[in-house]
Design a protein around this nucleic acid. Structure first.
Lengths: 200, 200
DNA sequence: ATACTTACGAGTAACTTACGAGTATTTGGA
DNA sequence: TCCAAATACTCGTAAGTTACTCGTAAGTAT
């Protein structure tokens, strides 16, 4: 879902023009400003960037000078870093170039981050390949919360229930077994599950 | 809902006139002040700006020198209205007091809205009770998009594939049957599925 | 009466969209 | 490693819409 260099340049031009002139540029102005030779080129950019929801018109289709950046409220970027890939039963796989993901503003918090679900290992939790989960980094949890836990290095997503003797991890789907964590296990809570989403 | 350059200029004129002269300008004064050749032009601005809620009359319609600015209110929150409840096989149930739901900023758009999923009827689509879906209102779709469709009044969430003879609706899960829509069916597309999420 | 506001009808310039076709650049395999 | 295919980008022009304009006449409140 990332943009090419030229596409970024295109969006930048609109942002700057809108800022400086108080209204969106017309196709002709964009054409001149970016050195294109044809309106068709401008239209091509508008079409693909609209489809990808980086642009929209404030006044419905064919509204004049109505091109607006979706990213406008990026002034306070409501994004969280995508820190890694998670698949049940495997270690969490870190991503180097922490890309940012748009999320609802109330979820923006320094301790929150996003993981992308890899594979269908969590299908029984109604979470499938390609979904995203938002996690609050926290080494502890309250009983009944869903946690991202690591058992002997393997990630899992389960309800957390501490007991006298150790910890029980319950699946969302009651058809699957409860996991009993023993003292001999290497157990840690990575964080608490706050939200999950899927883009279509 | 942004204004054109000329529309801003029109509002500015009213603001300044009201400030300086202590009363709103008459149509003639606006005409002279902005260099129009006709009252019709002034009236055109008043009409569209009133429709868009940037102007109103303090004394009801046809009140003289009563043009007043609706000074800009909103600090655009990144929310969408929750318009109803959806369950596969049932009509969409409208909610009266449209509450607002926080969503990622890029999804904020006048044509987008949120539906809450009721019951487990969409479980095979990996969408369960209590999930939310974000839909872009649109009466048509491109092949391959996931649509919220109504067949004989019943809602469903399916991949959309038009054919020569009608429309095919494919489920996300291939274990479930493809629906063939016939001409005799009352079929309409409510919108296009953009995003789904779940709070924990 | 006077001082305004509303209601047509119609025109034009400013823009946006649609279409058709061609050239670069990346990507996925054999 | 090299080709084929997809994707990204470019051009020109014509047609379609919208924002804005005019003029005039009829309506409404003091």
């Amino acid at each position: 879902m990332s943009l090419s260099f030229k596409q970024k340049r295109f969006l930048d031009f609109i942002r700057r023009h809108t800022l400086i002139h108080g209204q969106s540029p017309s196709y002709e102005e964009i054409m001149a400003g970016l050195g294109f030779g044809s309106l068709g080129t401008v239209n091509w950019y508008v079409r693909v960037l609209t489809e990808r929801r980086h642009l929209y018109r404030t006044k419905g289709p064919n509204g004049k000078r109505a091109l607006t950046l979706t990213e406008q409220e990026h002034a306070t970027p409501a994004t969280l870093p995508l820190l890694g890939l998670i698949a049940a039963g495997y270690p969490i796989e870190a991503l180097e170039n922490a890309e940012s993901i748009d999320v609802p503003a109330p979820l923006v918090h320094p301790d929150n981050f996003v993981l992308k679900v890899k594979g269908d290992s969590m299908i029984e939790e109604q979470i499938e390949d390609g979904d995203y989960i938002i996690v609050r980094k926290n080494p502890t949890a309250k009983p009944g919360q869903i946690v991202v836990a690591l058992i002997n290095g393997e990630a899992t997503l389960k309800y957390y229930y501490p007991t006298d003797t150790g910890v029980e991890l319950h699946p969302r789907n009651p058809d699957y077994p409860v996991i009993h964590v023993h003292k001999s296990d290497d157990f840690s809570i990575n964080g608490i599950l706050l939200y999950s989403f899927r883009e279509y």
